[in-house]
């Protein structure tokens, strides 16, 4: 068997072992490691590379840990004449000096190589700009080929198989952009533009969060990440670039009127209407998003109504005031209009 084949066998064996060990560990801890927001369920090349680094270090670390613990117990409990060899300076030189130097001399270059290969800008990547704001995400898709630019919020949709180049910054304090299934995190720092690159390899719904403490509602600052097949992505993109759809029934028209007179447009933009505020999330296609409140609640007419009426109760400290004075009827109309903005 040549060296390469051996390596493949070893790699395969290691992989199976690690997967089984991980599965066992997950079972023991009564949770699934697969998840919409898990570094242990990689859905992209970078996340896989880091996942393998994790697995190798975990397995290696566990072995070293078991070794050290066994030596310690041996040093305490073995009969004195049998453990005498351990009680010498040699133990320190070999165990504490030579062994770490050899191990780390292998690990460090491996870590650096993973670092080199992770988060690498690619030709033809899809650019996306994300701006962290206190407790939500402003997302901009710049013009790309025939496609025009548009803004959305708290949701990132990406095509599978194409590299994504996300530029991030912040409008207020430091946030951190993290989609565990696709790779590491990158801080969003006012005055600096940082970049992170990743490729989604598996269609599905994932979740990202803010990883840097950013104030009162840091805990409620998440977003959805949806990986679509390229055609579906193009279709989504075309839809998003369009202006908001007209209300089709009187109730929704009333909702739009309430939106207008209530002054919602001074903070929110709904393209195709006079609402053009830039302070809060763009709501042109808010009805098409999976969740509201920055990844907090499933998006439906009920949660939308609840959000409008009780913002400060649900997520105290956000900029948007509660509109608790709306009548039930008005609230339904307004929420219905929002929900209709697919």
């Amino acid at each position: 068997m040549n060296l390469e084949a051996r390596w493949h066998t070893l790699h395969g064996w290691l992989g199976t072992f690690a997967k089984r060990a991980a599965a066992l560990f997950c079972m023991l801890s009564l949770i699934g490691c697969s998840g919409v927001q898990s570094a242990l369920d990689p859905a992209g090349g970078d996340a896989s590379r880091i996942y393998w680094l994790t697995v190798i270090m975990t397995v290696g670390g566990t072995l070293i840990f078991l070794g050290v613990t066994s030596l310690l117990l041996y040093a305490i409990f073995a009969p004195p004449e049998r453990r005498a060899w351990l009680g010498t300076r040699g133990t320190i030189v070999y165990g504490g000096l030579a062994f770490p130097i050899v191990t780390l001399s292998a690990l460090l270059p491996y870590g650096l190589i993973v670092m080199r290969d992770t988060d690498v800008p690619q030709e033809g990547a899809l650019p996306i700009e994300v701006i962290g704001e206190q407790y939500w995400w402003r997302v901009r898709y710049p013009a790309d080929g025939r496609q025009t630019e548009f803004s959305t919020a708290n949701e990132i949709v990406v095509p599978v198989g194409r590299s994504i180049a996300v530029s991030v910054t912040s409008a207020d304090v430091i946030h951190s952009f993290w989609i565990p299934n696709f790779g590491g995190k990158i801080d969003m720092i006012p005055g600096r533009i940082n970049r992170i690159n990743f490729t989604a390899e598996r269609p599905g719904v994932y979740r990202g969060v803010c990883a840097e403490f950013c104030g009162d509602q840091h805990a409620r600052m998440a977003f959805d990440v949806i990986a679509l097949e390229p055609e579906a992505f193009e279709a989504w993109r075309t839809e998003q670039a369009k202006p908001a759809r007209e209300p089709e029934i009187p109730l929704l028209a009333r909702g739009r009127e309430l939106f207008r007179v209530g002054g919602c447009g001074s903070c929110h933009a709904v393209r195709g209407t006079e609402a053009s505020g830039q302070f809060g999330p763009d709501l042109t296609h808010v009805g098409s998003r999976r969740t509201i409140g920055a990844g907090q609640f499933p998006n439906n007419i009920g949660t939308l109504a609840g959000w409008i009426a009780n913002t400060q109760h649900i997520k105290p400290g956000v900029r948007m005031p509660s509109y608790g004075s709306l009548s039930g009827e008005d609230l339904r109309a307004l929420a219905g209009y929002m929900e209709s903005l697919k």
Partner: peptide, 21 residues
């Protein structure tokens, strides 16, 4: 003696990583 190893470790990256990416 130990410093020799540590200094070498800090030089490795020049051969692996791009300058400023």
């Amino acid at each position: 003696g130990l410093s020799l190893v540590i200094i070498l470790w800090h030089g490795i990256s020049a051969f692996i990583l791009p300058a400023c990416a």
